[in-house]
Write a protein that binds this DNA or RNA. Structure first.
Length: 740
DNA sequence: GAGCACTGC
């Protein structure tokens, strides 16, 4: 490869200075206007592309103008890494130690002090602060950055801050709160209208033009075959000038296959005759996705050797979370994997869906960070027009709202349906959440938060899991439940190697871990792993366990333990006793949280859920109870996944006596009743009267007709899954052969 | 007899 290929390829591409100093940024000319706008009005929107310097400079300007005298400036980011790195840069620019005037706080890592006047934090962190201090009395200004990403927490903060302002300087606040929303140029009119038609300031960014090319390879029926991506990538490599390539695909399997194929094709290239740009002498192919180890991920950021073109094949992680310098060409499959919640069947379905137009522009923008670039879209203009929405549906409209609604209720937002949402979730999503909260006794029949609900909201966990934890704490056996809750909130701890031989070995070891605790309870297996695995030792290697995942579980467990200890000191924290075996105790605690996820065995190896949907589910083959179905009757499970079948994962058998008293609660109250109590105070008589009104029942999506539709939506999801699987199997050999 | 996009507290 090192035949002395002449021109210095990569150096000449990097025109932008490696780190822009505050003084050179475009935002500087707007300093006065920004400070004036913030001091004069309660709300301000600042728009600008990446590279405008708004995240680092604006808080500094406001601080230097003396606007942080009566309270700190809080700046939120959707991601931890970004939060810390922005804080570091600002502290450096202002010449102070991090944690002093400039600080940050993210989960597990608080680097701030009494002195901190500019505090960067994740949006989730600010939401936690609000729970402890609803008036945010320590802050004079809140800046919500990256608002266009519309994270769940940012969306909730929008509504809460708007409400806080409408209270018009409530007692307890020294000064009026100021709110600045920073966003890419996206749906700005809607945002401005939401905040009472507030002013919008635009800061020009610093990026280079990107040419957008439609390759017309994908018909609307295809779901992102990696074969087309490989073809286009090779075309770029052979025909385009130096510069790195970034390919967007949907998932690990597509990426690994595309990389294999790309490698095979690239090996056969004769660089003397086939390559247009003679300074290009090789191709370095690198996969990138979230479940890769951090060390593997780091390789992506190393510059390729001289003359070698780097090609990163990535999931959406490269769209926002990780930035790769030097990319000049983007290949966009037009698809993304998205988790969508279906409230009527109560299931989350991970689907491959077309990206939105704004997401496509975001992907294209990755080619114009250091020089002008090109974005190759595998799809056609018809696909662009007909299949791709303008904007991505915000998370709040796609996700289960149980935790969010509980948070709002704890902040005395009684009417959760008419809360000022920038984008209102469908009513049935809210009703489903209310129903679930009622079922686990977090709210009462009137929709008011209970004492238990106040305990539950303290945990960074889904309410049903918090329920199990509290039950355990009341029985003084939280040592069993805290590790399980932690293990269930981190990524999968079981390593699943690609090689079939190794896969078998890994399966045997996982089975062994389960047998050590009786071999019939997936939750107990997690506890077993947590207790045995305390360092990245040979143990992890032997049992095929992800150390990174267990390590995060250790931090989560510590945090949960601290919260539990605090709650247990409260005089009204429940106390119970239990006589029985340890395994029964564990399973009973799990029942307290998961009785909504109880299922009874139906025909052959299937189970029927008891949540009112009566879905037919199968035990996932990764469970230790797989193949033991006929010996079981009642089970509880942690979650559901819809692929070729509806599978339940993380399962344990229970006895009917343990859940029989809890089950009636699942049918005691219907969503429509809670719909009414969510809006206003109603009497018990009214609730009873409504109970029999069939039209209301219809409104809340519980009719047989709608249930059939939902069965259809699951059928569709399964059909799409199988189609994708087939495409993956044949697509790679198919279309590419014609062109090679 | 299977598959896990990405965040966050």
């Amino acid at each position: 490869n090192n035949g002395g290929g002449g021109r210095a390829a990569r150096g000449s591409l990097r025109r932008g200075p490696p780190a822009m100093e505050g003084g050179a940024l475009p935002i500087r000319r707007h300093r006065r206007a920004l400070v004036r706008a913030v001091s004069e009005r309660p709300f301000l929107i600042v728009t600008g592309e990446t590279g405008s310097g708004k995240s680092t400079q604006l808080p500094k300007y406001l601080y230097e103008a003396g606007l942080a005298k009566h309270g700190a400036i809080g700046v939120t980011q959707p991601r931890r890494v970004a939060t810390i790195s922005v804080a570091q840069r600002v502290a450096e620019e202002m010449g102070c130690a991090l944690g002093g005037v400039v600080g940050y706080q993210v989960r597990f890592d608080d680097c701030s002090s009494e002195e901190t006047a500019i505090k960067y934090m994740t949006d989730g962190c600010l939401l936690r602060h609000i729970l402890a201090d609803p008036l945010l009395s320590k802050y004079s200004i809140i800046i919500l950055d990256e608002a266009h990403e519309r994270s769940l927490s940012t969306d909730i903060l929008f509504g809460l801050l708007k409400k806080l302002f409408l209270q018009n300087k409530p007692p307890g606040r020294k000064t009026e709160m100021k709110v600045v929303v920073m966003s890419a140029t996206l749906e700005v009119d809607k945002l401005s209208e939401f905040f009472g038609h507030c002013s919008v300031l635009h800061i020009p960014g610093r990026s280079y033009p990107v040419k957008e090319i439609f390759c017309n390879l994908l018909s609307p029926r295809d779901t992102g075959s990696s074969a087309y991506a490989v073809k286009v990538t090779l075309d770029i490599h052979l025909n385009e000038a130096e510069g790195d390539i970034l390919v967007f695909l949907t998932g690990q399997i597509e990426i690994e296959k595309a990389c294999d194929l790309l490698f095979k094709k690239a090996e056969t290239i004769d660089y003397r005759y086939e390559v247009h740009d003679q300074s290009v002498e090789g191709l370095l192919i690198l996969p990138l996705y979230g479940s890769m180890s951090t060390d593997q991920q780091k390789r992506i950021f190393l510059p390729a050797p001289k003359g070698i073109r780097k090609c990163v094949v990535s999931t959406n992680i490269a769209a926002t979370s990780l930035t790769i310098e030097g990319v000049r060409y983007v290949v966009d499959s037009g698809f993304v994997k998205q988790l969508n919640h279906n409230p009527r069947v109560g299931l989350d379905i991970l689907e491959v869906v077309p990206i939105s137009k704004s997401e496509a522009m975001q992907r294209a923008g990755r080619a114009g960070r250091t020089s002008s670039g090109k974005s190759y879209r595998l799809y056609s203009t018809e696909f662009w027009e007909q299949c791709m929405p303008d904007h991505t549906v915000p998370e709040i409209k796609r996700t289960s709202l149980t935790s969010v609604i509980l948070t709002l209720k704890c902040l005395s937002v009684h009417d959760v349906i008419r809360f000022p949402y920038l984008d209102r979730p469908e009513e049935r999503h809210i009703l489903e959440a209310l129903k679930q909260l009622y079922q686990c006794d977090a709210i009462d029949r009137r929709g008011h938060v209970t004492r238990l609900g106040e305990f539950l909201v303290q945990f960074p966990l889904p309410p049903n899991l918090s329920c199990a934890v509290i039950k355990a704490a009341s029985l003084d056996c939280e040592d069993m439940l805290l590790p399980i809750a932690a293990m269930l909130s981190v990524e999968n701890v079981f390593i699943r190697p690609g090689d079939p031989q190794k896969q078998k070995e890994a399966e045997l070891q996982h089975q062994e871990l389960s047998s050590q605790v009786g071999g019939c309870n997936d939750f107990a297996t997690l506890l077993n792993i947590f207790e045995q695995c305390k360092s990245p030792s040979a143990w992890c290697h032997k049992y095929w366990i992800h150390w990174r995942a267990v390590k995060s579980a250790l931090s989560v467990e510590k945090q949960l333990r601290e919260i539990t200890n605090k709650l247990k000191q409260l005089p009204d924290f429940p106390k119970e006793t239990f006589e029985g075996s340890r395994t029964e105790l564990l399973r009973r605690c799990l029942c307290a949280g998961y009785f909504i996820n109880v299922a009874r065995r139906s025909a052959a190896r299937t189970f029927c859920t008891m949540d009112g949907h009566g879905s037919i589910v199968y035990i996932h083959p990764s469970s230790t109870l797989y193949n033991q179905e006929t010996r079981l009757e009642w089970i509880i499970f942690h979650d559901v996944t819809v692929t070729s079948k509806i599978y339940v994962r993380t399962v344990c058998p229970v006895r009917y006596e343990w859940v029989k008293d809890l089950l009636p609660r699942l049918h005691q109250i219907d969503a429509y009743e809670l719909s009414s109590v969510a809006r206003e105070e109603v009497t018990e008589e009214e609730i009873t009267r409504w109970k029999h009104k069939e039209d209301l029942r219809r409104q809340c999506g519980l009719t047989k007709l709608e249930k059939r539709n939902d069965d259809k939506s699951i059928q569709d999801a399964r059909a799409r899954y199988l189609e994708r699987k087939q495409q993956r199997a044949q697509g790679l050999s198919g279309p590419l052969k014609e062109t090679s």
